[in-house]
Simulated scan of single mutants.
Amino acid sequence: MTARLRPLVTQWTYAVPVLAVILLVFTWGRDLSGAVVVLVTLVLAGSVLAAVHHAEVVAHRVGEPFGSLVLAVAVTIIEVALIVTLMLDGGDKSATLARDTVFAAVMITCNGIVGICLLAASLRHGTAVFNSEGTGAALATVATLATLSLVLPTFTTSKPGPEFSGIQLTFAAVSSLVLYGLFVATQTVRHRDYFLPITRDGEVIDADDHADAPTFRTAMISLSMLGLALIGVVGLAKGVSPTIESGVEGAGLPQAVVGVIIALLVLLPETIAALRAARRDRVQTSLNLALGSAMASIGLTIPAVALATIWLSGPLVLGLGATHMVLLALTVVVSSLTVVHGRATPLQGGVHLILFAAYLVLAMNP
């Protein structure tokens, strides 16, 4: 790609957030036709990609440990905004939306993204190589967060149904924040080398050695574009939420499919970035993206949604059903066996992808 064409290709990340805000002004509070819904959906997806791009620019500028928080917080704002937006309009039927979206994020990241990255890297390079110490720590944190937030509510007795009481929800929210904060500190400060890519001889590759930080001006522009993109995502999601729910209902699909759609949309940028890293034999980077996204989805979304229950009148159902608990348990076991040796073949990638396919089938046909 020539130097003249490259700026033209990257300018869309600046144009889309502005277009999203303009489109929001003209569509807010109005009934949308089919053609407009399609346009809004396309701009919404573009705004998600643009938001993550600008978050990465800002993160690169401020450096670690604060840089890694920028992308996670930005993506989580998008996820929470979409969840709360649909919960506000959905009433009791959207009581499980937060649970479905968070669990979908866990299955997409731990099986979908991990599986396709391991498969791509091992097919291209023979085996996928990564640091088992860092990846194991990330997996343990994800498993703990998922169990505390999504499994325990099914078995508590303070409230009827798979719901937390107020005290239990507060504990889950605070615990999620503490665990996520501890992991970020471990990943970016105390044991940063555990989460850097490694060579096939086990030597650490510092990914920042050859990367020049953007200028202050570039970072400030990206910060402004990030704000516009997030405003566009929240507002446009509000506009298309009735169409999403009616489309799922019209297709005869369970309400949980709405959560799958939200998670797939939010995690699209991480999926693309992780796959690119895997093809470059930077599997540790791919696993950092996948497990880090799962961790942020639980560790930041659950506290935010718990806070939102102050003004949300409907119930908040977090407990998983028996089928999903089996899938979660199998995912944790398989992931542990994948991580323990620090190497993976196409078989491990295929096993994770089959688990992800099983989740999709059961989500549409429980």
Rank of each mutant, 00 (worst) to 15 (best):
T144C: 10
G247Q: 03
M220R: 11
V48E: 01
V305F: 09
S246M: 07
L39E: 08
P162T: 04
Y14C: 14
L97D: 07
V332S: 05
T271V: 05
F130V: 13
V258Q: 06
E270Y: 14
A15M: 14
L230I: 11
T154Y: 07
L355P: 08
G161P: 08
A251N: 08
G91N: 01
R343W: 04
A50K: 01
H60M: 13
V70C: 04
T109S: 11
V43R: 00
G46L: 06
I113T: 09
L347E: 06
K93I: 15
S68C: 02
T157S: 12
T170H: 07
H60W: 06
G349M: 12
C110I: 06
S222I: 05
A263T: 11
V204D: 03
A273P: 04
T188I: 02
R280E: 12
G126S: 09
F66L: 15
L39S: 07
V283H: 00
L307Q: 04
L226V: 06
L82R: 03
G247N: 04
T127L: 05
L347N: 05
E249S: 13
H125N: 13
H324E: 15
A138E: 12
W28V: 15
I108G: 03
Y359S: 12
V266N: 00
A45S: 08
A55M: 06
G235C: 04
A138H: 03
T85H: 09
G202P: 10
G259W: 00
D209C: 06
R192N: 12
L49K: 02
